[in-house]
Write a protein that binds this DNA or RNA. Structure first.
Lengths: 305, 305
DNA sequence: AATTTGCATATCTTTTGCATATGGATCGTC
DNA sequence: GACGATCCATATGCAAAAGATATGCAAATT
């Protein structure tokens, strides 16, 4: 029967290209390692290594196997970690993720503050990443839940709860002629057609990027994307530097960025930044249950107001 | 150290909900199984099962772990299979996949025939699936190579070689007024704007579906998709039944489907069905090398003619 | 209260993974 | 061309660990 030991040994031998050296690295002697490799090859029914006078070399079968073996060993580590985390979760630990654009939203910060106050014993660990990475982390049980934007792709595995829709604002340099207008008046999206646009796009996943492009298309023009930034804050820095304008969620406007003004958009633009909570579909007990209770109550309160 | 044995045992116990019954299923006695489960829990540092008077029940940690354990055990099986296949490949075995729309193409059938003739000792195993499924199978080493349509998504892992572009024909019922026209004259895509269209779409992946929609958009109209079929042949049956027209690769026209006529499209439509070969990026030796040699020679020959 | 059910503990047996010692093949060097 | 070095394979012994048997203990059923 094949065991993880065989995989660990095969990977070590493949990496060292030497049975003897691999044995040293594994902290065992050479003969037993030779034995185990032979046993593995017998179980598979195919040679994984070509024995050569100066070491060993992977066969085609070996390459195919060792690649997958590495993944299996990594997955095993992850499984152990996930179990540990789930167990700690029952006793008061919670790992939460945010997209960078959600981190400053008062809803999110409010929930976190309330968790701290009402259950100070629960250790919170926070992580910032893109929506795509967060979804992946929740699926892999590396996070208990994540605040994400645009629940675009439905995943059977996850429950994605829509929390609220946030208005999006136009960010433009202070010295821009439009920045002097009455700040209460709303402007139309199409009036920005000629402005160079700076957008925020993470390497993984679509997120808000596509919604903005789509809204511009709906407004009858194709935006001139002057630059793409990988972090939302750097988008604002580029705006301040006068390279163009941008469109960001309202909560980002709370960051006092010198040199940036904000304008409200016409409601007709239909441009909103949805905020959602993603979590595993499995029954949520323990600390995650506490978080969900707080979140759902706050969503209800908002609806009432 | 955690071994696959622990995972196998944990999965069995989780599925049976009983240590005793799981032991029977595993062909061992109850006490050693209890021991191994304990050892696993100790290694993880968290209990996976809640011992109850009438059996055992998964904890939250247990659920997280067992789910991943199942995947790991499956992956291990796949790794072994992949290694076996790779090994057999060296000695003369080759697993090839097709999309259903490529299976009848003379290029593909020609390559297969030549393989048979020049290397009859090589055992070919063929599989038909959608482009998406085939790509996945090649990535997972379940197939050595696959003839696919539209190499849309670039994958770091794979080499996708474009082989040729095939013309696409309009398929329409015999009794359709247009079917009586001179078969040599080409018709424009836009002249089909009002016809109900029957398209072929596999549940997974885009494939030709999107190219057709895109070409119609480019021609200035949005096609009326009357029906979608999951197999290309059933598309033709629906056409024969008079439910609408369709657009299929030229090689499909070789299937003599009673009641279906074909018309050539205007070149301006720019509607072609690309045929490509997908394979792992790894150095291709053995039987796969033979196949590649035949394929590249034939591509060159075509270019010459 | 008695019986059954099912996991845990204790002790013994057997398997097997690992160590030590040695043999054999190939390469480089004198 | 012989010699030593390098590296894998084979042989044998030992010790750790997986598994078997017997028994204990707790909760639920009757």
């Amino acid at each position: 029967m094949i065991e993880l030991r065989h995989l660990r040994y095969a990977v070590a031998v493949a990496e060292e290209g030497h049975i003897t050296r691999a044995a040293a690295r594994l902290g065992i002697q050479q003969p037993p390692l030779s034995q185990q490799i032979r046993a593995l090859e017998a179980a598979i029914g195919a040679p994984l290594f070509r024995r050569q006078p100066r070491g060993v070399e992977l066969t085609a079968a070996g390459r195919a196997f060792v690649g997958k073996a590495r993944a299996i060993l990594r997955d095993t580590e992850l499984a152990v970690e996930a179990a540990r985390r789930a167990s700690r979760g029952q006793e008061g630990q919670l790992a939460i993720g945010f997209t960078s654009s959600a981190a400053f939203h008062p809803f999110v910060t409010g929930v976190m503050r309330e968790m701290r106050e009402h259950a100070p014993a629960i250790k919170l660990s926070l992580e910032e990443a893109s929506t795509g990475e967060l979804i992946e982390a929740v699926e892999a049980d590396r996070l208990d839940a994540a605040f994400v934007r645009s629940p675009s792709e439905r995943l059977d595995n996850l429950t994605i709860t829509h929390l609220l829709d946030e208005e999006m604002l136009v960010a433009l340099p202070d010295h821009h002629p439009r920045a002097r207008r009455d700040p209460r008046r709303r402007i139309s999206l199409s009036s920005l057609a000629d402005e160079p646009l700076i957008l925020y796009r993470r390497p993984t996943g679509p997120g808000l990027y596509d919604s903005i492009i789509a809204a511009c298309r709906a407004a009858g023009f194709s935006p001139k994307v002057a630059q793409e930034a990988t972090r939302m804050v750097s988008t604002l820095s580029l705006v301040a530097a006068g390279l163009g304008i941008s469109i960001v969620p309202e909560s980002m406007a709370r960051l006092e960025t010198a040199g940036v003004s904000y304008l409200r958009l016409d409601r007709a633009a239909g441009l909103v930044a949805p905020l959602a909570l993603a979590r595993k579909k499995a029954p949520a007990g323990g600390t995650l249950g506490r978080l969900l209770a707080i979140v759902t109550r706050r969503v209800k309160d908002r609806a009432g107001v």
